[in-house]
Computed example of a mutant assay.
Amino acid sequence: MSRLNSLRSRFVDAPDSLGAKARARRWHWFAQRFPDLSEMSVIDLGGTVSAWLRAPVRPARVRVVNLEKPPTDLPDWVRADVADACDLPREIRAEGYDLVFSNAVIEHVGGHLRRQLFADAVHELADRHWVQTPYRYFPVEPHFLFPGFQYLPIAARTALLRRWPLVHTPTSDREAARTIVMEVELLSITEMRHYFPSSQIHYERLGGLVKSVIAMKEKAG
């Protein structure tokens, strides 16, 4: 492992990294906001089963919806479906849920119209929700760990991605790199207020700067 790869682990991936500590704080905050979580049915749009198995919190039931195939060996409190969160099958939409959860997904769904469909699904599925996304104007782009990456032209981002070793999944292929770059569209606070007009907007900060934005609705009705 190169020194830069070790640096990514230190800041993001390792159990004692800054990223891991931030995730732990976020889980703690989430549990505080929804104190009856252990009795709730939660649908997670775009999450993973592994994240819930590692989480320090456990709802009564979790249904995970993701485009990737889930593991086959699931505990009895977790259900997983392969589906598009912007175009959910009727059987998923028809079931009742207490809370919609989504962590760092809405910036990946692809353009304004699909983000609106995603938000519409959040509002339809349950009265309460927690939708988190990295903030567009935080100085360091969180997916690629490069300062100001989100402001560069696509060609420059593509070239950087092919050479920058701090990305989660590096690739030297130009087409693959361009696709990865174009799949991430960070959101502003104004956009989050537009998609979630009746929600409370909360901020996760690092060094006094807004690092991520959370649209939250804590009470039903």
Rank of each mutant, 00 (worst) to 15 (best):
F138N: 01
F138M: 01
P134G: 02
R157F: 11
A156F: 01
Q150A: 05
L161P: 00
F138T: 01
R136S: 04
V167R: 03
A156V: 15
F144V: 15
A155R: 05
P134E: 03
P165S: 08
G148P: 02
P134L: 05
P142A: 00
L145T: 04
L166F: 11
P147M: 14
L161H: 15
P134I: 02
T133R: 13
R162S: 08
L161G: 05
T133Y: 06
A159S: 15
I154P: 02
V140G: 09
L161R: 08
L166M: 14
R163H: 02
P147K: 07
H143N: 13
T133V: 15
P142L: 06
A156C: 11
F144Q: 02
L145R: 09
P139F: 07
L166I: 09
V167A: 08
A155D: 10
T133M: 07
L161D: 06
L166V: 12
P142Y: 02
E141A: 05
L161N: 14
A155Y: 00
A155P: 00
P165M: 11
V140Y: 09
R163F: 09
A159D: 09
H143V: 03
L160R: 11
Y151C: 02
T158K: 08
R162A: 01
A159Q: 09
L160P: 14
Y137W: 00
T133P: 05
R163G: 15
P139Q: 03
T158N: 10
P139V: 06
V167Y: 07
A159E: 14
P153W: 06
P134A: 10
R136A: 03
P134D: 02
